[in-house]
Amino acid sequence: MTEVEPMKIGIGDETKPNTNDPDQKKKPLKRKRLEPSLCKASPEEKQAKIDSLRNEIISLVRFCKELVLENRRALLENVEKVGNSSASLNCMIACLMEESDLPLFKLVDEIFEKVKGRTGNGESVTKASVKSTVLMIGQRLCYGVASAEADLLEDETECALWCWEVRDLKLMPKLVRGPVKVRRTCRKKIHERITAVLGKFLLL
């Protein structure tokens, strides 16, 4: 029986397109241009958007202030329960300072009026000692919109939403630590939203 020789298929023999042939090159796709009316807002639409963003920022600032005012009473109520010692004096100053929006010099005056007559480390409290304690246990944060040149400790711009916070919550009475943490989280969320809205505002 005659053996049939297998057929050889030359893969390399297939005709390949000539990539060097200019006729074979793909033509670049042209991007469709948007009509001017679709990509550019009218002055009226732009102003309406600006007003909307501005009103949202104002509402956020107002809400943040109301949040602090409604809940700060609980902190101030705890001041009268604090004892008369060096540690309790720091606790008292912490309660008086937490969530205050005052500039440093006004905050020191306000706290001093409420703690004068007490003793700290065996010495009578002075404005200088109150200021030193405030700067040691607290920090002033901006949750709104502040100028780059603003004085971190003394600026009083309303839209900056300045807020004093105790660095270590252990200085605060246990009963208020939880609510204070929640309000701090709320302020951070408000700050994030204000930053986002401001970014949109600047793009207009």
Rank of each mutant, 00 (worst) to 15 (best):
G12D: 14
M172F: 10
E99T: 14
V125A: 01
K30L: 12
E149A: 15
A94Q: 05
E45V: 12
P43R: 14
N18M: 06
K200N: 06
E123K: 08
C91V: 01
C39P: 01
R187F: 10
L202C: 07
V61H: 05
G178T: 12
S129Y: 01
C163T: 15
D21R: 04
E5Y: 04
L53V: 08
S124A: 10
K188W: 02
S88P: 02
K200L: 07
L104H: 05
E35L: 07
R167H: 00
E98F: 00
E56A: 13
A48R: 14
V145W: 13
L67G: 08
R184H: 11
H191L: 02
S129L: 10
A74H: 06
G117Y: 03
C91N: 05
E192G: 07
I11N: 09
L102D: 13
E66L: 03
E158K: 12
L67E: 00
M92A: 01
A196T: 04
K25D: 04
L107K: 06
R62V: 10
N121A: 06
S85N: 03
G12E: 13
R187T: 00
P179V: 10
T19K: 11
E77S: 06
D155N: 15
E154C: 09
C159S: 15
K16R: 12
R167P: 07
T157R: 15
S37R: 11
K32P: 00
E3M: 14
T126N: 01
R167W: 00
L198A: 12
R54S: 10
C159Q: 15
G178V: 11
K188S: 13
L75Y: 02
P6S: 04
L198C: 10
G12R: 00
Q47V: 08
I111M: 01
S147M: 12
K189M: 07
L175V: 11
E77L: 03
T133Y: 00
V4F: 14
E77I: 06
D109L: 07
P179F: 03
G117Q: 07
T2K: 15
E70H: 04
D21K: 10
F105V: 13
L161N: 09
M172N: 08
N20C: 04
V115W: 03
A87D: 01
A196E: 12
G12F: 02
K127W: 00
E113F: 04
E80H: 08
K170Y: 10
E154V: 04
K189G: 03
R73L: 14
